[in-house]
């Protein structure tokens, strides 16, 4: 099954890196959509089927926190997992993200294997260990 992803970051470089990592992860990719802020991302979520959103926090116009809050308030998209990708990695930030209902957190720098494991966990693709 191929998955559609949405990458939300104001930096074109980071969007490119995340997309590249997804492509290298071994996941079956349908489409990778990109948005430069939360507002554009919400429009894309209205128009496209998205399996997982990867989002930055600090963005102009609408930041990651507002976007996550609007997603939580919209019954059409409130079940789409949001994974925050950030350079900040202290416990305050992690607790704050948990309080927002974020599905998972990836700290930079990251590798394709990490993205795959997060997606597999969120979408229930983890291999069952019978050992």
């Amino acid at each position: 099954m191929a998955y559609n992803f949405l990458v939300v970051d104001d930096s074109p470089i980071i969007r490119s890196v995340v997309s590249k990592c997804l492509a290298m992860s071994g996941l079956e990719i349908g489409s990778i959509f990109e948005a430069a802020n939360g507002r554009v991302a919400l429009d894309m979520l209205d128009d496209n089927w998205i399996d997982v959103v990867f989002a930055d926090l600090n963005m102009p116009e609408m930041d990651g926190r507002e976007m996550i809050q609007e997603m939580a308030d919209n019954k059409m998209i409130d079940n789409i997992p949001v994974v925050v990708i950030s350079s900040e990695r202290n416990e305050d930030v992690l607790n704050w993200l948990n309080s927002l209902g974020v599905s998972d957190f990836i700290s930079k720098p990251f590798k394709p294997e990490k993205m795959k494991s997060v997606v597999d966990k969120l979408l229930g693709n983890e291999e069952i260990n019978h050992g």
Partner: peptide
């Protein structure tokens, strides 16, 4: 930006309170 996150964790630990 990425270096700063790694640096603060290496220096002050995961439970640091720096933004």
């Amino acid at each position: 930006n990425i270096v700063c996150g790694v640096f603060l964790e290496s220096w002050l630990g995961k439970s640091n309170h720096c933004r």
